[in-house]
Each structure stands twice: as structure tokens, then as C-alpha cells.
């Protein structure tokens, strides 16, 4: 396993990027996600209107992997329908579990494909999937 395949430029850049790190004034779906083994702790905020994620943001702290993964997820789901967001989450989680390996089936994840190699670093898988599990939990609660 090489560090270069995990700490890629795109992941490191996104871990430092703050453009999604804020509160949303009229968030109507807020979910906290916590990774006790690592201490990663995030809160994602969504504005969902008529089945669409109109806007999304997050706050919190954690390692480079968790923070990059969260920020890239927010970029990806903004303006998507809730159903599309769910498909993205399922695809991302299936990629990490190596259930989906075909590049063409992963294209919808865009830059988040960069996390594919995290399955080679088992201790850090939880960091990469935290945001996506939190998103699924948020949607489940919103729809309940």
C-alpha cells in the first residue's frame, strides 16, 4: 500500500478546502455523525425542498480523510434529488466495500472515486464512509 494512493492531491486539497464548512440559515435536515474510534465528528446540514437537496454544508472536525470525504460529498449532492443522493451514497459505500469495482459504474461519484483505495487501509475506512452514513441517516429520518 502506498501513501500516495491514499493521500492523493485531490483528497489533500479537499481536506483543506473550507468552502462547504459553514452553517445554513434555513437547514431543515441536520444530522451529526461521529466516529468514536477516530474522534471524527461532523454535522451535515441540508435544505431539502420538493425532494431536492437545494443546499448542503457541514461543520465539525476530524482527520484529513473524513473532512475531505465530507466536503466532496457535499459538492456532489448539492442540487441533486434526494433519490439521486441516496444512489450516490449506496454507490460510494459499495465502492469502499469492493462490491462495485467497475470504473464505469463509479463514474457518478466523480472526484470521490479518489477514495477507492481506502479499502487498502482498513483502519481508515470508517473515516471515509462517515459522511455518507450520516447522509443516509439524515435522509431516512427526514422521510420517516
Amino acid at each position: 500500500m502506498s501513501l500516495e494512493s491514499i493521500y492523493t492531491d485531490i483528497i489533500l486539497e479537499n481536506s483543506r478546502s473550507d468552502h462547504n464548512r459553514k452553517h445554513l440559515d434555513c437547514a431543515n435536515c441536520i444530522e451529526r455523525g461521529h466516529n468514536p474510534s477516530c474522534g471524527d465528528d461532523i454535522v451535515i446540514e441540508l435544505i431539502i425542498k420538493d425532494g431536492t437537496v437545494v443546499d448542503a454544508a457541514f461543520t465539525g472536525s476530524g482527520c484529513a480523510i473524513s473532512q475531505a470525504s465530507t466536503s466532496m460529498m457535499i459538492d456532489l449532492i448539492r442540487s441533486k434529488s434526494v433519490d439521486e443522493a441516496k444512489v450516490l451514497a449506496d454507490t460510494f459505500l459499495a465502492m469502499i466495500k469492493k462490491i462495485i469495482e467497475e470504473e464505469s459504474d463509479l463514474e457518478i461519484l466523480e472526484d470521490a472515486i479518489a477514495f477507492k483505495n481506502i479499502s487498502n487501509m482498513p483502519a481508515r475506512v470508517k473515516c471515509a464512509v462517515l459522511a455518507w452514513h450520516t447522509l443516509k441517516e439524515a435522509i431516512k429520518r427526514k422521510q420517516a
Binding site: 500500500m1 501513501l3 491514499i6 493521500y7 474510534s37 477516530c38 474522534g39 471524527d40 476530524g62 482527520c63 484529513a64 480523510i65 487501509m121 483502519a123 481508515r124 473515516c127
Partner: peptide, 22 residues
Amino acid sequence: GCHPHDVASIVDTYGVALRAGH
């Protein structure tokens, strides 16, 4: 500028076992 879990993962690749977290 560097979270403990990233420290632990990176030094691990140099053979160094240390603990990160709470």
C-alpha cells in the same frame, strides 16, 4: 495542521506503531 489519525496512518507505513485518538 495534521490530525492524529493521519499521523498514525502515515508513520505506520514507516513501521512506527503509535496511538491516535481520545
